[in-house]
Design a protein around this nucleic acid. Sequence first.
DNA 1: CATCAGGGCCCTG
DNA 2: CAGGGCCCTGAT
Length: 321
Amino acid sequence: MEKLDSKQKIIIEPTVPFDFNSTFHKPDHFPSGDNEWEQGIRWQTMLWKDKRLGLKFIDKENTNIAVKVFSSSELSQDFIKSLKKELMYRYCLDLDLKEFNEEFENHSLLGPIIEKWKGMRPIHSGSLYEYTVIMIMLQNCTVKRSVNMLQRLFENYGVKLSYDDKELWSYWEPEDLEKVTGEELRELKLGYRAKFLDRISKQFAQGKVDEFKLREKPREEQKEALLKLYGIGPASVGNLLWEVFRNYSKIEHISPWERKIYSKLFFDREPDNPASEESLLSYFEEEFGKYQMLAVHYIWEDLWWKRKNKDIAWLEELINL
DNA sequence: CATCAGGGCCCTG
DNA sequence: CAGGGCCCTGAT
């Protein structure tokens, strides 16, 4: 365990409008040992430029965010500057929602949801590598199993950080897994995902993927690069393009479990008789144009917030906890 | 107890 | 380009 005693503060002014809680808490994300949320506060560990950080985001009435940065050693001004820039990117704090809001404020389904969550942003708290790990852990298993696998990885390769009366796990670096054998990972009950994680960590450690260069590339090039990662296919790549590379213009793939939920949400069709992938895709295209993924995100998150407050029977059957 | 599908992907034919 | 196999887990 690493104690983080050094402390600094960053003030961030997000673009207007902004909503703290729906941005910093995503009820559809499975619980993970690297973060915690309560009304107006999110704790999040972060690995940035070889330093392990404990972050505490504090809401200032949806206009500012105070970020307390805990670390084990003093941080330079340059470091803080680069960190602030990265936080802006990961939490989408410079996103301009004006056009989106105006275009859909009168939409029968989306309009009221935009009104309710005005200023919500998509986020990804981790790096591309970290997010890729999550994608692998999600594949072909229940949420409970995903949670367990990630937790075992934290306990074996991560570092627990202690700050602000919290103890949270921080990720390992791809290099840390380079020397770990596939068999060792199998013992953590990752199943066949062990091979994926093993090979992907090597690909990252050897510099075969450059997250920051990829951010500048067009969607098709990003997609091509991501599909070279061993174990990343059409379902995972869609999520990575959206969540890590902020590509909200297009949806290309809908997995069967999502298809059932979307069918109910958009067409009011029962899960045992879901709409086809094609009909959903063309509906999204026609209805939401270049904001497809962002629009669906708003509707999707709204559903999960509703579920957080009250059981939704039809949904429970479909989410495979 | 056995069987099976599951928040996919790889590989083969 | 369709379909089998893959690790494990928990539901039936």
